[in-house]
Amino acid sequence: MKSSKLEQYIRSIELNRENIPSFSEYPFNLPAIRDLHSLSFHPKVTFIIGENGSGKSTILESIAVAYGFNAEGGTKNFNFTSRATHSNLSNYIKVIKGTRKPRTGFFLRAESFYNFASNVDDLGAINSYGGRSLHEQSHGEAFFSVFLNRFTGEGIYILDEPEAALSPSRQMSMLTRIHELVTEGSQFIIATHSPIIMAYPQAVIYQIKDGFEQIGYEETEHYQVMKSFLNNTQKILNILLE
């Protein structure tokens, strides 16, 4: 019997450091990239967290593109480009795959979701997304419609800040949906700022500071800051607004 580690869809990535022209130039000067050699992923859920500008979206995009997804999101069948702004990091990323192939997959990124929704309309593919144009729904409704209608079992899902359009209660609903899909053999790699979403149990959490560091949920700054704020709201407001 093969281990789940060998069977997972994306086992790890490796950075081809020898061919990188300069680590003083973008995107190779980012904290997420500068000291990166390889990175292993959990068979079920891996989170990548870090401050704005740390490079988590850039590394997630490069993994998705190197795996074969469109840089602006969607399934592997999407090839639209509204503006070519993605980095060339994917050219230096090697994706180490497992023995099993996923039945489906999706790269979701908050910043280009509008362009993705427009392409769905252009292709006449709204039936695959709940039968209603994503543009006719609120941003949060459209996001969640994709989770419910387009994500299925035995899939690889790479999500960049999926909480961007979701209320806290919707983020909790997303946890339920992630768990349903994990029990059906799916794998997730998620960049997030949400202490709700990253609470998914037994996940691997990588924090980017000077490089990648595996960290426990309650050790994350996101959890600690949110807990401190909720437990000491007035005191913190007095400090922030004095």
Rank of each mutant, 00 (worst) to 15 (best):
2 K>Q: 13
4 S>I: 10
11 R>W: 00
14 E>L: 03
17 R>T: 12
17 R>I: 07
21 P>N: 01
27 P>D: 02
27 P>E: 01
29 N>L: 04
32 A>R: 14
35 D>W: 00
36 L>C: 06
41 F>E: 07
42 H>Y: 09
45 V>I: 12
47 F>N: 14
48 I>M: 14
49 I>L: 09
52 N>V: 09
58 T>K: 03
59 I>H: 02
60 L>P: 14
61 E>I: 00
65 V>Y: 10
67 Y>M: 02
70 N>R: 04
70 N>T: 04
72 E>R: 02
73 G>W: 12
74 G>E: 08
76 K>R: 13
79 N>R: 04
81 T>Y: 05
82 S>W: 10
82 S>V: 08
86 H>W: 15
88 N>T: 02
95 V>E: 06
96 I>S: 02
99 T>I: 11
102 P>M: 14
102 P>Q: 13
103 R>C: 08
104 T>R: 14
108 L>T: 07
109 R>D: 10
110 A>D: 13
115 N>S: 13
115 N>W: 11
118 S>I: 12
120 V>G: 00
121 D>W: 06
121 D>I: 09
124 G>S: 05
127 N>M: 06
129 Y>G: 01
129 Y>T: 00
132 R>A: 10
133 S>H: 09
134 L>H: 08
135 H>D: 02
136 E>D: 14
137 Q>Y: 00
143 F>M: 14
144 F>Y: 15
147 F>R: 14
147 F>S: 10
149 N>Q: 06
149 N>W: 03
151 F>R: 11
151 F>L: 15
152 T>L: 11
153 G>R: 08
153 G>F: 03
155 G>D: 11
155 G>V: 10
157 Y>G: 05
158 I>F: 03
160 D>S: 12
164 A>T: 15
165 A>Q: 05
166 L>I: 12
169 S>Q: 11
172 M>G: 01
175 L>C: 02
182 V>Y: 08
185 G>F: 07
189 I>E: 11
189 I>S: 05
195 P>V: 01
196 I>N: 01
198 M>G: 04
198 M>N: 11
204 V>R: 11
208 I>Y: 11
212 F>D: 06
217 Y>V: 07
218 E>D: 09
219 E>K: 14
221 E>L: 04
224 Q>L: 13
225 V>A: 09
225 V>P: 06
229 F>A: 03
229 F>E: 02
232 N>H: 15
234 Q>E: 15
234 Q>C: 03
236 I>G: 07
241 L>R: 13
